[in-house]
Simulated scan of single mutants.
Amino acid sequence: MDWLPVGIVIALAMGFNYTNGFHDAANAIATSVSTRALTPRVALAMAAVANLVGAFFGTKVAKTIGSGVIDAPSGNVGLMICGAGLVGAIGWNLLTWWYGLPSSSSHALIGGLGGAALAASAGVHWASVFEKIIIPMIASPIVGVVVGYLVMTSILWLFRNAQPGRVSRGFRYAQTASAAAMAFGHGLQDAAKTAGVVVLALTVGGYHAPGDDSIPIWVLVLSAVVISLGTYAGGWRIMRTLGRRIIHLDPPQGFAAETTAAGILYVAGLAFGAPISTTHTITSAIMGVGATKRLSAVRWGVAGNIVGAWVLTFPGAGIVAAVSFWLVDLVV
């Protein structure tokens, strides 16, 4: 097969990867910036490097996306499905970024692929989607709220007799490590998802053997570099939502939220290969941490708007992808 259609899909994948980077930069660093533990540019540079490194540990997630979501046929139709799915995901990323809503790039990608596959009458691996995507999608925010609450409660108890100013300064330094851990988890999850789509495109295009679960090193490197560049470009609109509009965080709260979210990302990606949302995870952790102060300290109205964006992500990206597929199919 001609390499040009495959190259176009890979370019679209990198376009999605870049938007994923600047859309989700806030996930890793919003709490550190809002607590003034790190300056914005230092935080972004650190997050970009951690994203780059984390990408090389996400092969399980890449395999789930590459072979566990849709059954794309070989040839141009399969490439059209991949391309349309990526267009749907990019469109949804840009829309939610514009309105400052921290929706899930991961679920936009999965919804886009699913919508394009349905439009093409191709197969969707519903059992795998339910097991590896739907269940983790529901479970991860619940775990984030509960664990975030417990971690923050433990910190409050351990440092109950300490001098507040000294504790705040100490956790401001600790947030450098917790933000890096969160960014590493973002690379592990999100760069790997794009790598999985590239492998899917290579497979249907005839450049990767069907059934071969290996991820070419150049695909991982490319995905890691592009998402890191996107991360360094920043995502200031969403950063304001996560860092201040849900709850005003102090350094111990920021550390608790980032540590909780990073731990959940590692377990899901390394142990189960489950492509969970970094956005869902950090947002729910922030809510759980904030609830230790008092329930009214969390701006639940803002949280409700975010949940609404979560609910709309699958169908929104899927519809854009389906329309994109039909339009390309008419032209071609």
Rank of each mutant, 00 (worst) to 15 (best):
G170Q: 09
S284L: 04
F184G: 12
I10W: 03
V311T: 15
N51L: 03
V143K: 05
S277E: 02
N93L: 10
I135W: 09
A116W: 12
D190Q: 11
P102G: 05
V143P: 11
A297E: 01
G288D: 02
C82Y: 10
E131G: 13
V221H: 07
G304H: 02
A274L: 12
A48R: 13
A257Y: 15
I138Y: 09
T19V: 04
I110A: 01
A191F: 01
W97F: 02
L327I: 14
W310Q: 00
D24I: 06
P5V: 05
V267D: 02
A321V: 05
T259L: 15
G112N: 07
V53H: 02
L330I: 01
A183W: 12
A174R: 02
A285R: 00
D24N: 11
A209K: 09
G21Y: 09
I282Q: 04
L79P: 13
L295I: 06
A47Q: 06
D190Y: 12
A30S: 08
F272D: 07
G15M: 11
A177R: 00
A183Y: 06
G68A: 13
L44E: 07
L242A: 00
I138R: 09
I10N: 06
A256Y: 14
V331P: 02
M1S: 09
F255V: 01
I264L: 03
S214T: 13
S104K: 05
F56G: 02
R245Y: 03
V199D: 00
G114C: 15
G235I: 09
A117S: 14
D213W: 06
G15E: 04
I90H: 06
R299W: 05
V124R: 10
P210Y: 05
R294L: 00
A177K: 01
L118F: 14
A192Q: 07
V289D: 02
L312S: 12
G7W: 00
V323F: 03
S34K: 03
L270S: 00
M152P: 08
A321N: 04
P315D: 12
I286P: 01
G148F: 01
L312N: 09
N305I: 14
I29Y: 12
V143I: 13
M182Q: 15
L188V: 07
G269P: 11
A233V: 03
I90C: 06
A291K: 06
R294W: 04
A233M: 10
P251D: 15
I70K: 08
L188E: 03
V167C: 07
G165H: 09
N20C: 07
I276F: 06
W3E: 12
N161M: 08
W236I: 09
F171R: 00
I10V: 15
L222H: 01
H208A: 12
W126S: 13
P251Y: 15
Y173M: 09
W98G: 10
H208W: 12
E258T: 07
M137G: 15
M182P: 13
T313F: 00
S178I: 02
R41K: 14
G273Q: 12
A127D: 13
L113V: 08
S154Y: 06
L150W: 01
